[in-house]
Design a protein around this nucleic acid. Sequence first.
DNA 1: GTGAAAGCGCTAACAT
DNA 2: ATGTTAGCGCTTTCAC
Lengths: 343, 343
Amino acid sequence: MCPKKQSVTIQDVAKAAGVSVSTVSRVLNGKVDVSSVTQEHIEETIQQLGYTSNLAARSMRSKRNHLVGLIMPDIAYPFAWEVMKGVNRAIAESEYDLLVYTRGDVRKYGTAAHEQQIVSLLNGSITDGLLIVAPVSEEFFSNAPIVSVDHLAVRPGYPSVHSTNYEGALEAVRYLLSLGHRRIGFISGRQELISSNRRFQAYHDALAEAGISLDQNLIAPGDYTTATGYTYAKQLLNLPQPPSAIFAANDQSAMGVYQAAQEMNLRIPEDLSLVGFDNIPEAAYLNLTTVDQFIAEMGYQAAKILFRLIEGETLETKIQQLPTQLVIRGSCQVLLSERASAS
Amino acid sequence: MCPKKQSVTIQDVAKAAGVSVSTVSRVLNGKVDVSSVTQEHIEETIQQLGYTSNLAARSMRSKRNHLVGLIMPDIAYPFAWEVMKGVNRAIAESEYDLLVYTRGDVRKYGTAAHEQQIVSLLNGSITDGLLIVAPVSEEFFSNAPIVSVDHLAVRPGYPSVHSTNYEGALEAVRYLLSLGHRRIGFISGRQELISSNRRFQAYHDALAEAGISLDQNLIAPGDYTTATGYTYAKQLLNLPQPPSAIFAANDQSAMGVYQAAQEMNLRIPEDLSLVGFDNIPEAAYLNLTTVDQFIAEMGYQAAKILFRLIEGETLETKIQQLPTQLVIRGSCQVLLSERASAS
DNA sequence: GTGAAAGCGCTAACAT
DNA sequence: ATGTTAGCGCTTTCAC
């Protein structure tokens, strides 16, 4: 199917060039103590034979591979894509190549043990450092640096970049309150993630500020997916006293709410006010009001930090918070305040 | 920064369990000739020590790693994202994990030599097989299977999945002709890719069919990016006799044309008819007429084929063509035909 | 059923 | 400036 030519090793090159393996290795690693004559000769031979060093073997002996890893449970959802965009930019600007590792499904992943396994797999050998998206673990065993994206651990064992989840969510709920809403539903995120808890905490606090006590009926569990967003939105909207507004813990669940509302012939924002956390492109097209958290920027910053760590810098700041921004789209505000005050 | 605990090796496990390395290895690889007593004991020890096998070392000795690679020049553009979605789905359904390799920028990549280098790097050691997106090379040295996505080689050295570029483009141009257009501009794709040439060939043939000879002024080079799409669209539209319609070789360049038209206060489709190849979500939101090529499906199919190849199947078909579909959005057709016939 | 030993391709002392 | 040699952590004969 394709030329099975048994891969050529450093030995073959040495033999062909009539030198020892170590000399070839020296050339390969840009060491200086090689005469320019042999240097050129070896390089020529490498060209001719089409030699490429074996990653596995090389990784086993040397420290640096100019390769960093990005671990994601799944690469097919908008959040992942945004993170990758940011990381990709940092990679393009750098000397490193990127290896994105995924199992393709959160369900094939998700436990701390799994995470540790993948970390060991990559960082123990082939990568110089690792970026981990929304990890569950607070600490990892690893001999190369790790930076997490979107995970604010209480006492993190690694540097971390995330957005101001609490502040952003606070603003979102305050906004809905400012429109006159009193019954605001909440679709939660994955319980095990801190980001989700922070957003819930803000929901709680904003309501408390306004003197509204929590109504458990208006709080729906969720897991950051469209499917549950849809399911629980239906449930909320079918209550005897449905909420007049919903705050969804992320974009995906907001999309679910959107779908549910459409199906129930509720117009957004006329009949139902909706705000979602996150800033995927789709939101803009649908005129959804969102709390943008600059996901790509988080990926970019995390990668930059990782590079510095790999270079040997010791950074003071372990946690970096990137700002969020409430983006109100369309004519949401006016219509809603009219409706809300009328009710 | 994070616990630097020197990674535990198979030796450590052996020592702790009071057995030899080979016995541990046997357990690790599910060999049967181990007494269930020691088996359990070893597994326990592995748990306790938190041992994970070293990818590099393992790769060096064994054939299968349950890991496949996906090589992309850049993972931050919509086409890449679509491919990844498809591949991700296949991965989720499979026993394999995925490693996406990128340099973050086409410019850090692109030559056949580079491609071969990455192929050797991955396939020679850690991955069981490789998916390559839009490769330039027609052949690779590799001892593990390779499947390409979106590259119809004349005499491919590897199985390949791509869409019916020619047929789709033919349909697109015929459609524009059916609206009455006679001056149809073309924004080309990357010259070195066959997909681009096929789309151009169809443009040529469709015009010939209609008895229209090629006007070189209406043919703009391009490279599948938004930037060049924009630049050349401006150029085309500023001609003394501008085209009344443009066929862009892909979505990205179509977006560029879109931007240029907006800037020149040309409404689409009223003032300029535009069809782009590819099916990224943005196109739908902008009501762009497109030739959908089901990019994600290509990724999915390619991955499926790769899995079969790895399992040892020898496939007859080397090339799989997935259908394309002209999707006419909005009220494009009517408006255009009116304008075209009026002019 | 288990251990000893060879070696995968490479790098890094240590020699020369 | 170059060759020799000892492993890196693992799998895999081949003994026992």
